[in-house]
Simulated assay, not measured.
Amino acid sequence: MAENRITEYNKESKTVSWFYNDHKDEKRHDVTDNVIDFINRLIIHIPDYHVLTTRYYGFYANASKKTLDKVHALLGIKKNKDYSRETRTKTLKNKLNKLKYRTHLIDSFNLRPNSM
């Protein structure tokens, strides 16, 4: 549940007001619950320890990047970002190199790796 769906918290009466959109009739439903009942409703959505959840599926899955490229080409949509494996690997290596102490020294003193 997103935090912006909580509309009000009343400390004196210990109630939480929140809303949800029902997908059946596309209407907004406002609910006011006791704090304990709200927490009970909320924690049932937390997965148990060691339970794996699907993070990305469909077009968002790493395995379907080629399919997504074909869909972009068919629809004539320009991609905002290059998601190729080479670009992702290069970006990751750059991030990891920034973490190395030697790289920080080279960057700060403008030294080339061959001159050390």
Rank of each mutant, 00 (worst) to 15 (best):
Y56C: 09
D22I: 07
V31Y: 03
F59N: 07
T89L: 09
R88F: 00
N97P: 04
L68D: 04
K81Q: 06
R28P: 06
I43L: 10
D69S: 13
Y56E: 11
R102F: 06
R28H: 00
H50S: 13
L105I: 01
K98M: 12
L68W: 04
D48T: 13
Y83G: 02
L99W: 03
I106V: 03
L105V: 01
A73Q: 13
K90F: 14
R85C: 04
D82V: 11
K70E: 12
I106E: 03
T54Q: 15
T87N: 07
K66T: 10
K98Y: 08
L99C: 10
H72Q: 09
T67K: 09
I77V: 09
K24V: 03
I36N: 15
D37P: 13
G76H: 03
P47E: 05
E26K: 13
K24R: 01
E86D: 13
R88A: 01
K79M: 01
K95D: 07
A61V: 11
K65V: 11
S84L: 01
T32G: 06
L92S: 08
Y83C: 07
R55S: 12
I77M: 06
V71F: 10
D48K: 11
A61H: 15
R85W: 06
S64A: 12
K24W: 03
V51H: 06
L52C: 14
V35F: 15
N40G: 06
V35H: 12
K93V: 15
F109T: 02
I77L: 05
D69N: 13
D33T: 07
L96K: 05
N40H: 13
S64R: 08
H29G: 12
T67W: 02
H23K: 04
S64W: 06
Y56G: 05
L92R: 10
K78A: 15
Y60C: 09
V35K: 11
D33Q: 14
A61W: 05
T53Q: 15
N80P: 07
R88Y: 02
D107A: 00
N97L: 12
N40L: 15
T67Y: 05
I44M: 12
A61E: 08
T32R: 10
D22E: 04
I44E: 11
F38G: 00
D82M: 09
E86H: 14
E86N: 08
D107T: 00
S108P: 00
K70F: 11
V31I: 07
S108E: 04
R88V: 01
T53I: 13
Y101W: 07
R85G: 00
N97Q: 13
R85S: 09
G58P: 05
A73G: 05
I77C: 03
S108I: 03
H29A: 11
V71G: 03
Y83I: 10
Y60R: 02
K79Y: 01
H50W: 15
R55V: 14
R88I: 09
K65G: 02
K65S: 05
D82H: 00
